[in-house]
Design a protein around this nucleic acid. Sequence first.
DNA 1: ACCCACCTCACCATTTATGGGGAGTTGAAA
DNA 2: TTTCAACTCCCCATAAATGGTGAGGTGGGT
Lengths: 234, 234
Amino acid sequence: MLESFLDRLSQVGNLDDLDSAILTLSDELNVEHVVYHSVSSSGEQYAVTTYHPTWVNHYLGNDYARIDPVVLACLRRFHPVDWKRLDWSGKATRNFMHEAIDAGVGSQGYSIPIRGPSGQFALFTVSSRDNDDQWTTYTQDYTRSLILASHFVNQKALEIERGTDQAEIVSLSPRETDALTLLALGMNRAQAADSLSISEHTLRVYIESARFKLAAMNTTHAVARAMNQGLLRV
Amino acid sequence: MLESFLDRLSQVGNLDDLDSAILTLSDELNVEHVVYHSVSSSGEQYAVTTYHPTWVNHYLGNDYARIDPVVLACLRRFHPVDWKRLDWSGKATRNFMHEAIDAGVGSQGYSIPIRGPSGQFALFTVSSRDNDDQWTTYTQDYTRSLILASHFVNQKALEIERGTDQAEIVSLSPRETDALTLLALGMNRAQAADSLSISEHTLRVYIESARFKLAAMNTTHAVARAMNQGLLRV
DNA sequence: ACCCACCTCACCATTTATGGGGAGTTGAAA
DNA sequence: TTTCAACTCCCCATAAATGGTGAGGTGGGT
């Protein structure tokens, strides 16, 4: 049922094309609203949505991603999230929910978390005003299509964002990886050096060269960047 | 074409069931070999494969994941990886490739990277001894099935894993998140405090309480753990 | 054959982070 | 209404990391 969308997606060459391709998804997937929102590790965001711009601005202006139960749940899960199974108790949360519904967001929703290299994180969401039964049927019928759509949309978005989908090629030497890994595990330099059976001085050299390669200001930064780039098996 | 597998998967209740369900995939997906390999942030590994145990042990014993171009590429990409498009030059790499082929791995392969919450990373791989043309046709026909299979296998694996070990739900306060985020971006305490318009002393309190919540030995460790648990939007 | 990336080791001075004390306000949940 | 978590501010002493500048050996790739 995604044929025409996937065909169209393969023709997409820039973000504008992608925008309009994604907007056709609400028809193809038979829902009222579609949202694709990606955040890269460098903080760049890309979002396409059928929501009203007023709501989008309100959401961003209030930094609602911090309290939005959908976002919070997706950050912790691999499974797609059905909105109605989340915890909507709490004052701020319920207030947010009412604002969202008033803004036409739809009371039913289904969100798929997507994770890419270098700490990229994206959400693919569909929402409607169905009742519970309709929505249950819908999600059962469409789960696979939604997963595939989210996958291919994200793939295309990453492809466009950086020309290829290859992450920047920072490569650490084995020892540099060892050093950062042990530091990420909470050791100090003395412990890490001991664990690798090298002198603390030598360890420092690795940390410093890793810091340089990663263009990091300090050790914590280097570890954070290395983790974001999937360089550490912690 | 995945119907019977997905049916079977939904019945799976433990790792042994999952093992045998995955092993049926080579028939269902019409390939010689199937591999699912997951590494969680805490370092626990789970793997199922149709490869010969001798090869698996050899691979693990030599820590080949460090030089395996398939693994290295998947760590950097979102797109599935067709083995034949990788760079197999380099002495160690070519040596590894020959060993793999001799062990019956198959010269053609297709690997899908999968990322879950808390830094989980998994690979879903199929491989065969087809020639280039056969393989191109195969991957075109089966891409979607492979993506869906990888998704549902990983979903089930996480589900089982989570059932067995109670995932501790560490939650950081907004300020704690702010503090760790800025440190992860490379700021020192003075800069971070300045950026948040609070005193450096106050910032320290946040860092320390975050460190306590995360059971971290030091700031670097706290940032690493927070990132692994998807607590930071860096 | 040569180059370059990698691995290994050392000292000194300075900047930063950490450990251990306290204290007062606010706002939301039970 | 009480309780508790979160937010804000402060000092002192010590431990740890960083910046700068070295050097020498090995192995793989062009």
